[in-house]
């Protein structure tokens, strides 16, 4: 099986729950476990929050684009903004690192993405934006295809 969806929305914090709920609804067709569903919702929430806070510095005129592709048991997610970009990606992905300590950020967003997914990649161009690509293979639903 293969399937695809794309959704673009305003970079407003109200849309963080919309984004994770929408992706969760789309991937439900893979019959994920509750744990897999939570992992996907969490990483979407992390990436969209990063786009809003860091990519656009809470300027709600920006937009966030999510694309999600399903192929057999594999999910591929890209979360893209067209904002500030990240100057130093290696620094940004360090656990507990935050560029905005005054906002009470935990600095754990990228660490969570790395831990909850099989594959994690960031492409960022300063002043053009950031794209996070996340991939995971779902393990629970083998019986449906075997």
């Amino acid at each position: 099986m293969s399937n695809f969806m794309k959704v673009e929305f305003a970079a407003k914090s109200e849309n963080e729950s919309f984004a994770r709920t929408t992706v969760a609804a789309f991937i439900a067709q893979l019959d994920p476990t509750v744990e897999e569903l939570t992992e996907i919702k969490t990483v979407v929430s992390e990436a969209v929050t990063n786009a809003i806070i860091h990519g656009y510095e809470e300027n709600e005129k920006g937009t966030v684009l999510i694309e999600c592709e399903l192929k057999d048991d594999n999910i591929s997610l890209t979360i893209r903004d067209f904002g500030n970009g990240i100057e130093d990606v290696d620094e940004a992905i360090q656990p507990m690192y935050t560029s905005k300590p005054e906002l009470e950020r935990s600095g754990m967003g990228f660490t969570i993405m790395e831990n909850f997914m099989d594959h994690f990649e960031i492409e960022s161009i300063p002043n053009h934006g950031t794209t996070v690509t996340l991939r995971k293979k779902f393990l629970n639903n083998q019986s449906a295809y075997n």
């Binding site: 969490t42 929430s45 929050t49 906002l103 009470e104 950020r105 935990s106 967003g109 969570i112």
Partner: peptide, 13 residues
């Protein structure tokens, strides 16, 4: 029912 790293920031604060 759901929390992300923003919640961790609130608890740590």
């Amino acid at each position: 029912y759901f929390m992300d790293s923003s919640g961790l920031g609130v608890f740590l604060g």
